[in-house]
Design a protein around this nucleic acid. Sequence first.
DNA 1: ATGTCACGTACCACGTGA
Length: 289
Amino acid sequence: MRVTTWNVNSAKQRVPRLLPWLDQRQPDVVCLQETKLTDAAFRELLGGPLEERGYEVAVHGEAQWNGVAILSRVGLGEVVAGIPDGPGFPHPEARAVSATCGGIRVHSVYVPNGRTPDSDHYHYKLAWLAALREQVAAGPKEAIVCGDVNIAPADADVFDPAAYVGHTHVTAPERDALAQLQALGLRDVIRDRWPDKRVFTYWDYRAGMFHQDLGMRIDLVLASAPVAGRVQAAWVDRLARKGTGPSDHAPVVVDLDEAPDGDIGPMVPPPSAPVKRGKTKLPQSPPGQ
DNA sequence: ATGTCACGTACCACGTGA
């Protein structure tokens, strides 16, 4: 099963890149971010072409900004739009959608940018991440969080750490919030696969940043242990960032092996009723590299 | 000194968000 995530920076503008990419890469699950379309406009624009290709669609969008979606051709159930009781700015925005696809709880997320570390938007970003953590924690343990997290997990994930001092995406509170999400037992599958490689997913359109490979790794696939254990391949599709009319983000592609039988349970066992089988106990924090 | 793109509104340019 091939699971992917891509911040397309306007689904409408990206149609000429998105549809050929689906045909080329044949993903089973596609998490999209920054669709920038209402649900009605998304279905009007892409409903037909996606149905032809065998995809069911879960969308959560708005007219101008944000917007997320999940496309799946391995089933799409129990769709939840947004983060129930999550924070807004000031009103809730279309930044998350989740669904069960091929037995995995899939979350497509577009984490707030944060703008500047002294802004209200930055505090909103941190609160939003905490709410996402609670939502994932309350869900099944077969889980995968995919999307634009607008955080570079480590200094190795930015082209020049010095250039980002004092900016969002690299501050300790942001990284801590991401680490707390990962502390549910979520593995960063790209970094696991490429521990020492220079690997980015986003390059600013300006100043030939892509051509010089001056980017950031802010689009992540975070997989719970049972899913991370099935990873057969994990890579960034830089080809999709090249050529005419690309998004400023590249897709992340993850291939999973077949699921083993059984052993379905909650992400975090209730304290009053601990899971005693102990067969696939989740670590309290990700093991060190 | 932002070498870009996309958004809406409003017109052939600008403010905003990223």
